[in-house]
Nucleic acid binder design. Structure first.
Length: 962
DNA sequence: GAGTTTGAAACT
DNA sequence: CAGTTTCAAACTC
């Protein structure tokens, strides 16, 4: 961080400044018996004004004194969470402190330039440890720990420094405290440098990184930027504080549960602290001087005292990490080289040291550099966001204001040029103090993973799983897809304080940003796969509704559940396709959280995602089928709550296609009628171009046709255009357009006035959708009230775990769909849309308790698999004509060109794609076969129609089907 | 557009 | 679980 440094020299003897520490062994030995505080501090290294004289009348106990001596003389740099004007405060701890009268607080106010150092106070957590608060110019309080807690008064000689065995240290569990020879508590942004090979402890409040910088001769590792909820503390300590100081790097990582992992090259990680962090407790960091010069291999936490070890102990919590968020223990294997090097030249000195020092990042970890240059080691799984920095050159991204504001962190991925960006989610603290710190430490970052609002697994259900899937349209707008349940809400602006999500740190992002980031990340990934354009590369903070789409990539996982099992080959193929083709067909599995609870597997839909490299990302996405082997849950349509599809009749296909169609039906959702009409229209267009297609279909690639196909669906992307019926009415929003494009239809807009759209009365809510363009009043069914919404969802699920399950399902694949619960009509005869069965166009069943039901199964308009499909087709054709008079000219032709036929044809084509995808066949072959399939189907249809027309009356299509 | 009807959801 | 109330969509005018 390009921070200006403020030097605080705590000099007990008038401001000694020696780069080399006087904390030599001899010195320690000599002073230890008396354990006077005066000897504790010794300045070292770069002496920088102002000189701070710590007046203390307390002396350290012998062991403490020893420990402190190790620290003293060493510049302790505490790199706090950087602010925009991050500064480094260097405190030189001088050996000798002069006793001064204590104030009312038992503190000795000492003025050091603009810094006041108060006398020690005793922290409840550090009984016996005197903490000296230091007030900095900016009003922040630092603490200097002058004494150590020695419980029981028993100490043992433990080699603490430089392999010496003449140090007295408490034994047992007290060791951690015992080694806190000197504590420095820092809050706010300050850096304390201690240039002395000595034992030092620093109490770090919140997000303070403590760096024990050794004299340059020993090399130093500067602090890394800690996050609000996790701190990575690196320190360079003199290995031999007594005589031959040897630099030993110490890197400490606090895990989510408050454990501290010592990171050291060439040595296994050491768990320094097993105590889970608790909020509101000041965190102190202490370090012991390793007895052994450089290598601390073989040491572990339990052996710290018995073996010379370099360790940094953080007592107490820095901040509580949210559940699920964790900074994984890092084993800093020396020599391992799969690390990301900070590439930013703008990195501050403290951050670049790590890189320059060649410290390796362990496998599975990544060095992340914040926009201000701070670095943290993050487990790969903790990386929330990863993408190329939009609209910024890689060399300047770290200093990009946008990046800084957004909390982006630059990383350098091996094998990737330029900086990648990771968003480490800011921590939300639950306590007020943390919140306060947030304001002062905007750069705190936490490795936080999105959380659900409840520990209950079912909580996943409530987390934004009701949003539609959003895909990018050709126009570049993000629009929701129909009936897709979001896995994660993009944000929760209205999140109440009691929500699990905390407020953002420093920047505008909120805790909910975690979700947002996740989602946006997914979006980004999709975009990247689809050759995102500049427009796609919206800032990471782009606050458009985003949804989790699980791509069959290992790295892309749904936040609500495991990524759907996708054949690796398919992934490969997809990737290959994406990389090689301008027009790309991609299979995307959309994993939606099932609102019905954990017992119900999340809904999953498989889409064929068509992308075009020269376009703005995803162009089309069509629903292929649902979970393997299971009938898809159909798109929600205009039907009311819980209904899957306003399915019209399912007509029996032409004889030559019957088997195929039947098979397809089992996996295919019905598009709403308008969509079907449009499909028909599309297919007619296809027919018009059939001759062209058949001639050149083998040569035509999807790419070439895609170019031609701004109006007509033909081979290149015909499959997708077919399923993308043009909007019946120009959608007011891109979302609606996208819905149409996806074969769905925008649901009706609710008009709720009293339910706040948070009850199942609201169709939007019942369908798991956010209200959009509705005329409801006091609507809470939106992202702004995600918390309430989730709560409402939970309530609904408590009442009825199946509340959000589709009401209409087919018991078995291919079976006629039925209302799961049945209707309860009494007056409508089940012949009005009051009846849910009738509305769903399904016959009432034994499940119904209706009175005077007339919604019988034999009704033609509810007979989905009737042999009268062609009759129905005829009827529907007429209906189509009524609805869209200019649409169909020839009913007779449409007798055969039914929706089912169209669907079947499409599905056949899609099946080809899927099959090829699974077989990892070249895309060229896939394209060709798809075209062949289309041509074959059309030929069959035409042939069949001709034959039947010659044989039967056109108004008796039923006989043809027979 | 207002009022009525209807049945599911919510409540008791 | 049954009865009642609430609610919003469907329906009618």
């Amino acid at each position: 961080m390009a921070s200006k440094q403020q030097n605080l020299d705590i000099d007990d003897n008038g401001g000694g400044c020696d780069t080399n520490i006087d904390m030599k062994r001899g010195y320690l030995e000599k002073k230890e018996p008396s354990a006077t505080t005066n000897e504790l501090l010794n300045t070292s290294g770069q002496k920088k004004a102002p000189i701070v004289r710590i007046l203390e009348n307390k002396r350290l106990t012998a062991p403490m004194g020893s420990a402190l001596k190790n620290i003293l003389g060493e510049t302790v740099r505490v790199a706090t969470a950087p602010t925009k004007t991050s500064s480094t405060t260097e405190i030189k701890i001088l050996n000798k402190l002069q006793a001064k009268p204590l104030n009312a607080f038992g503190n000795v106010p000492v003025k050091i330039g603009s810094t006041t150092i108060a006398a020690p106070t005793t922290s409840p957590k550090n009984i016996g440890v005197k903490m000296t608060p230091i007030k900095t110019a900016d009003g922040k309080v630092l603490y200097l720990q002058k004494s150590l807690p020695v419980t029981g008064g028993t100490t043992s000689k433990v080699p603490l420094v430089s392999g010496t065995s003449d140090r007295l240290l408490p034994t047992g569990s007290n060791i951690r405290h015992a080694i806190l020879s000197k504590g420095v508590t820092l809050s706010g942004t300050s850096t304390i440098k201690s240039n002395a090979s000595s034992l030092s402890s620093a109490t770090v409040r919140g997000l303070t990184a403590v760096e024990m910088a050794k004299p340059a001769a020993h090399g130093s590792t500067n602090a890394v930027a800690p996050s609000a909820s996790s701190s990575l503390i690196k320190g360079t300590f003199s290995a031999d504080a007594v005589s031959t100081p040897v630099a030993t790097k110490i890197q400490v990582v606090r895990t989510a549960d408050g454990k501290l992992i010592k990171l050291n090259q060439g040595s296994p990680s050491v768990l320094l602290n097993t105590k889970p962090a608790t909020l509101g407790v000041r965190t102190s960091v202490s370090s012991t001087q390793p007895a052994m010069p450089t290598s601390v291999s073989g040491n572990n936490a339990n052996k710290v005292m018995s073996k010379p070890t370099t360790q940094v102990i953080i007592k107490g919590p820095l901040k509580q990490l949210p559940a699920g968020s964790s900074l994984r223990p890092i084993i800093n294997n020396s020599g391992s080289s799969n690390k990301a090097a900070i590439s930013s030249s703008s990195a501050v000195a403290s951050t670049t040291i790590t890189t320059s020092a060649g410290s390796s990042i362990p496998s599975g970890k990544m060095l992340v550099q914040s926009s201000t240059g701070k670095q943290i080691v993050v487990a790969n799984k903790d990386i929330i966001k990863l993408w190329p920095m939009p609209s910024t050159s890689t060399t300047t991204t770290t200093t990009n204001p946008n990046a800084a504001a957004s909390g982006l962190h630059a990383i350098q991925l091996p094998g990737k040029s330029g900086l990648q960006y990771v968003r480490v989610l800011p921590n939300n603290s639950n306590n007020s103090s943390a919140s306060n710190e947030t304001t002062t430490s905007p750069q705190k970052v936490s490795l936080e993973r999105p959380r659900t609002t409840s520990n209950n697994s079912s909580a996943t259900v409530s987390v934004g799983n009701t949003t539609k899937i959003v895909m990018k349209t050709t126009g570049g707008s993000i629009v929701p897809l129909p009936s897709m349940q979001t896995l994660v809400p993009r944000r929760t602006p209205g999140a109440t304080p009691n929500t699990a999500y905390a407020k953002p740190l420093g920047n505008s992002s909120s805790l909910d940003g975690a979700h947002k980031h996740r989602l946006s990340d997914i979006n980004v990934q999709i975009k990247q796969l689809s050759s995102d354009s500049a427009s796609d590369a919206g800032a990471p903070e782009a606050k458009k509704a985003r949804y989790v789409i699980s791509m069959p990539h290992t790295s892309m996982t749904s936040t609500t559940g495991p990524a759907p099992a996708t054949a690796p080959a398919a992934q490969k193929n997809m990737q290959k396709i994406m990389g090689a083709r301008t027009t790309q067909l991609q299979r995307v599995t959309v994993q939606g959280a099932n609102m019905t609870g954990s017992n119900n597997p999340p809904t999953r839909k498989v889409y064929n995602l068509v992308t075009k490299s020269d376009a703005n990302g995803v162009k089309y996405m069509i629903c292929n089928k649902g979970g393997e082997g299971k009938p898809r849950t159909v798109f929600n349509t205009t039907m009311r709550r819980g209904y899957t599809l306003a399915d019209s009749k399912l007509r029996r296909p032409l004889a030559t296609q019957q088997a195929r169609l039947k098979q397809m039906k089992q996996h295919q959702h019905r598009l709403m009628l308008p969509a079907q009409l449009k499909q028909r229209q599309q297919l007619q267009q296809l027919q018009k171009h059939q001759s062209t297609i058949t001639k050149s279909q083998q040569q035509q690639t999807l790419k070439s046709t895609a170019r031609q196909e701004s109006k007509i669906a033909i081979p290149s992307k015909p499959l997708f255009d077919i399923l993308k019926p043009p909007p019946l009415q120009a959608p007011a929003s891109g979302a609606a357009a996208a819905l149409d494009a996806l074969g769905g239809s925008r649901r009706k807009h609710c008009n709720c006035s009293k339910s706040q759209c948070l009850k199942l009365y609201c169709d939007c809510f019942a369908n798991g959708e956010f209200c959009q363009d509705c005329t409801c009043k006091d609507c809470f069914n939106n992202l702004d009230y995600e918390v309430k919404r989730e709560e409402a969802i939970r309530n609904c699920l408590e009442r009825n775990p199946s509340a959000f399950k589709p009401k209409i399902t087919a018991p078995n694949s291919g079976d006629i769909r039925l209302h799961n619960k049945g209707c309860n009509c009494k007056r409508s005869g089940c012949l009005k849309n009051y009846c849910e069965c009738y509305e769903a166009k399904i016959p009432c069943s034994t499940m119904c308790k209706c009175v005077g039901c007339r919604n019988m199964e034999d009704r033609p308009d509810v007979d989905m698999d009737s042999m009268d499909s062609l009759v129905d087709a005829k009827l529907q054709t007429n209906k189509v004509k009524d609805l869209n008079g200019t649409y169909l000219q020839d009913n007779r032709s449409n007798v055969y060109l039914t929706d089912d036929v169209i669907e079947a044809t499409i599905m056949c084509m899609i099946s080809r794609i899927v099959l090829h995808e699974k077989q990892n066949l070249p895309i060229e072959d896939t394209e060709r076969e798809v075209m062949e399939e289309l041509g074959e189907s059309l030929n069959q249809i035409i042939t069949f129609a001709k034959e039947k027309n010659d044989t039967f009356h056109t108004d008796d299509p039923k006989s043809t089907a027979a």
